[in-house]
């Protein structure tokens, strides 16, 4: 009888200890998803993007890229130009992520989501003409637009066409990419000059959207 009581006590204490240590681990595992609740307000619950809120599709982007962009927003390298309406919306959201661990957690969660293949909304782009311009883009972003982490180049395939166009316009107008804290964006600001006008931007975006198919 006494042996049974001791075994029961040991078993109960062990169970309690395991539960106590397991709880924080479980919470830490779900931290990215928990944090993403705020992001979902604009980017959508599946991170599929929403043009109305100027929030692009981010589902399935590489973790290194999401983390880097969040940090650029947090340190003011992105989202503090008066012409960057979407960026200025993202800047305060990013400073809400107060620790590097939280940034990693939410970036990991976003990367774990299936990549969205948004429906094109832009018209007037000529994909055939755009393919010629894209040869330059392909040196970093890849022939198939899959990106290249070694060159700090994100995937373009699977992005919203309106977001790609607005990004090109911002680079061209020097609204984005002016911070020395983000050398890759500075490179983009120079590279975008291969696109002579607004039509060329639409054409290259139209070509990128063929890569999404």
């Amino acid at each position: 009888m006494r042996m049974t009581l001791t075994r029961t006590l040991v078993a109960s204490i062990t169970t309690l200890l395991v539960a106590a240590f397991a709880l924080p681990v479980a919470a830490a595992d779900g931290r990215g998803e928990q944090l993403f609740e705020l992001c979902a307000q604009c980017h959508g619950s599946a991170a599929e993007g929403n043009q109305m809120t100027l929030a692009p599709a981010i589902a399935g982007l590489d973790e290194w890229y999401v983390e880097a962009q969040l940090n650029y927003f947090r340190n003011g390298a992105r989202g503090l130009h008066p012409g960057d309406t979407g960026g200025m919306r993202m800047y305060p959201m990013s400073i809400w992520l107060s620790t590097d661990e939280d940034v990693k957690a939410v970036a990991g969660y976003v990367a774990s989501l299936p990549r969205a293949n948004p429906t094109p909304v832009l018209e007037g782009g000529d994909a055939a003409k755009g393919s010629a311009f894209y040869l330059v883009c392909a040196t970093c972003h890849g022939q198939e637009g899959g990106g290249d982490p070694e060159k700090n180049s994100p995937p373009l395939r699977g992005a919203n066409d309106w977001y790609l166009l607005s990004s090109l316009e911002k680079y061209k107008a020097k609204i984005r990419g002016g911070s020395p804290l983000n050398p890759n964006a500075v490179v983009m600001q120079g590279t975008v000059n291969i696109l002579p006008d607004a039509q060329a931007m639409r054409d290259v975006v139209a070509h990128i959207m063929t890569l999404s198919e």
Binding site: P82, G83, A173, K174, I175
Partner: peptide
């Protein structure tokens, strides 16, 4: 100064 016209302002 920033180019405000370019900044959509």
């Amino acid at each position: 100064p920033l180019e405000l016209a370019a900044a959509n302002m």
